[in-house]
Amino acid sequence: MNMTLTKEKNSSAIVNGAIQPTALTEKVYETSGLNLWYGENHALKNINLDMHQNEVTAIIGPSGCGKSTYIKTLNRMIELVPDVKTTGQIKYRNRNILDQSYKVEDLRTQVGMVFQKPNPFPKSIYDNVVYGPKIHGIKNKKVLDEIVEKSLKGAAIWDEVKDRLHENAYGLSGGQQQRLCIARCLAIEPDVILMDEPTSALDPISTLKIEELVQELKKDFSIIIVTHNMQQAARISDRTAFFLNGEVIEYANTDTIFSNPDDKRTEDYITGRFG
């Protein structure tokens, strides 16, 4: 990665609990004035959020607060839902992705996604990982083999599956399947990885492995993770956004959010008084 862009956690100056990004922190996403409707239902209300390179940004909030909707807007996966309307803009690397001239296929080669439920294809482990590269037209067998090894190593699952790359991915455990899905996502060499509650269907040990993995991955990628597990957000993220009823109530350094939140509702939520 470009060294000058690598973010150092201490370089963000904190004034009044809000983050004043320094020149060193490159923004990957800049959301401004984003509104989203499902039909008549106003699901996201005037969202303003910036996300930074080589950081883990956590999005927390109670069920139905719009956090999943928001992360799905970041790679426009939300368009699969019929009758969705958006206003405002989301800039990814200074280009508005909500502009229809921005092709979703183009965006999603830069922004990978890991889903709530592990969703490997009913194919072999190898074929799962090469799916993305093949879609993008990479045919060279040697290159594909290298991608498979690199991606599986990157997702910390190589040692477990290296002897059975051509076996069905459905034979893996839930936690392994999710790491395979992360490997599949790494295989397209994305810039940003979106994770939509990636551990909600997993046992505690698999969850721990994924959390450790996220810490590893942020060296090379920018990660945005939705989680309903506040401890998880506290453990792995650099910044945390608290969503409630489609609004961003508070967005700050994770330490600040969890030790000294600005808003009463944030405090109530993280101390478990509701949600």
Partner: peptide, 22 residues
Amino acid sequence: PRDLREASFGMGATKWQTIRKV
């Protein structure tokens, strides 16, 4: 299953690639 389509779209596959391969 819908999540298989999402996985494919999520990697930048076009609709036709998703139909053809998934």
